[in-house]
């Protein structure tokens, strides 16, 4: 009969995968908690040292890196984009999934097309010129606005609404005289909350990680956290403890989100993959 229990090789492979996945992060912690001479020692140290707090303070106090500002900025950018994208996508997703209107299929096709075009790389020149002419370069607005366009979000929420909210429910509410927005608020919103969570987590992580566009449109004195790390890296290229303390700080919010919502993230990815 088929055997679904893992063989020894399978177990070993899983263990290796876990070790390899975790190692660079562990390594980050080792170097971030050491001194600089430890960091360049051969053989290198393999256990964390006692300087983590001190190195983190050094990063936060570093005048050139604006690290704290970077963390704050990333938090603002990621939060604003996440909230907006979730709202915009939930509204549009509801309309595509539960309402009927002329041109719906064409519009939905447009959404799918925007998903396939790497707009970030393609449109970078005009977007930059647009920000220059608006006088927004160097401001967070320039980073936030282009990312409010998120075809994936609309698509995901349309799929989710279609599955979570039966048409009969919408029609029944309509017969009862509820206006569209009230249906959205009372019927749809409670049902699609899990989908909103998945989209929100994804968007937050994507924004926190975004690099190319902020590198172009922001300046090092008003950075996002990724740009702050890049400045640290460029300016103090061999001061590994300092740079690693910065990278460790930059991933703490992501790890926190991941630990809190791990189940939803794994579930969301797997569900999304099967439906796409």
């Amino acid at each position: 009969m088929t055997n679904w229990s893992p063989t020894r090789i399978t177990r070993a492979m899983l263990a290796l995968a876990i070790v390899l996945s975790a190692f660079p992060l562990y390594w980050m912690l080792v170097i971030a908690s050491r001194t600089n001479s430890d960091a360049v020692a051969v053989p290198p140290p393999f256990l964390p040292g006692g300087n983590l707090g001190q190195n983190i303070v050094a990063v936060l106090n570093n005048e050139d890196a604006h690290f704290l500002l970077g963390l704050t900025n990333s938090f603002i950018v990621a939060s604003v984009v996440t909230v907006s994208v979730v709202i915009i996508s939930t509204l549009a997703g509801f309309s595509f999934a539960s309402l009927s209107f002329k041109g719906k299929n064409v519009l939905l096709l447009l959404v799918l097309l925007t998903m396939a075009v790497p707009l970030q790389q393609m449109g970078v020149v005009p977007l930059y010129r647009l920000m220059v002419s608006l006088g927004w370069t160097g401001t967070l607005k320039a980073v936030i606005l282009p990312y409010l366009l998120n075809g994936f979000g609309v698509f995901l929420m349309a799929q989710y609404t279609r599955q979570a909210v039966p048409m009969e429910l919408v029609e029944a509410a309509r017969v009862d005289g509820a206006a569209t927005l009230r249906i959205w608020w009372n019927v749809v919103l409670p049902a699609v909350r899990p989908g909103m969570a998945v989209l929100g987590i994804n968007t937050f992580m994507l924004m926190w990680n975004d690099f190319m566009w902020p590198l172009i449109v922001l300046t090092p004195d008003n950075p996002t956290v990724q740009i702050a790390i890049t400045s640290l890296n460029a300016r103090f290229s061999t001061n590994y403890t300092l740079i690693f303390a910065g990278t460790a700080l930059s991933i703490i919010p992501l790890i926190a989100v991941f630990v809190a919502f791990g189940r939803q993230i794994v579930g969301g990815l797997m569900e999304g993959a099967v439906k796409a």
Partner: peptide
């Protein structure tokens, strides 16, 4: 979750 860990860390870091 552990094999997904790399995905949720920042690229630059």
């Amino acid at each position: 979750m552990s094999v997904l860990l790399p995905l949720v860390t920042s690229v630059v870091a």
